[in-house]
């Protein structure tokens, strides 16, 4: 058992654990922050898999994203503090089965497919960052630009549908 194996397993289990906590707690802020820690554990797992840039980026981006999630939970839920333990679920049996089947299917594919030769060493972190930069501004430039443009479109669309109607008065 190598150190890498241990850390992948450890952070993987904590990510799954926090992911389960998201749907088991009644407090909405706890739910959002559990999702945050699940994603942070994933970021640590990326670090364990030597993808340093992605790991740090994941840890950074998710903190903001999930905090925003938390405030929306508090705004939109009827019982954000979770004091009343109200049930907010439906079709539980179906969803449990769907989740279980997709998990088993994923594991079966992971175990039974022949993945071919395993690469022993990854390039070091500085080299990876350089490679990624060249990839973004070279071969994948169009895709990256499209991603940026899509974000811009999404920002405009989200703002457009969420601003209140002006009721005949100038702002």
């Amino acid at each position: 058992m190598t150190a890498q194996m241990f850390f992948i397993g450890f952070f993987g289990i904590s990510a799954i654990w926090f992911g389960v906590v998201v749907f088991r707690t009644f407090s909405m802020v706890r739910s959002a922050l559990a999702l945050l820690f699940s994603q942070t554990a994933l970021g640590a797992m990326f670090l364990a898999m030597q993808a340093e840039f992605l790991g740090v980026l994941q840890i950074m981006m998710m903190a903001t994203e999930m905090s925003i999630m938390a405030i929306f939970m508090v705004m939109f839920m009827m019982d954000p503090g979770g004091m009343g333990t109200m049930d907010m679920t439906h079709q539980k049996r179906l969803s449990l089965w769907a989740g279980f089947v997709s998990f088993v299917g994923g594991v079966a594919i992971a175990v039974f497919v022949d993945w071919g030769p395993i690469a022993a060493i990854a390039p070091d972190a500085a080299q990876q960052t350089i490679d990624l930069g060249l990839e973004i501004l070279g071969r994948s430039m169009l895709i990256f630009e499209m991603a940026g443009l899509t974000i811009l479109t999404a920002m405009i669309a989200a703002t457009a549908i969420s601003i209140p109607e002006l009721k005949g008065k100038q702002q």
Partner: peptide
Amino acid sequence: LATGALFINAALVYVLV
């Protein structure tokens, strides 16, 4: 770290949390 400048950001976002 090879991503030091980014890591400072990542750590400081947790002030918000």
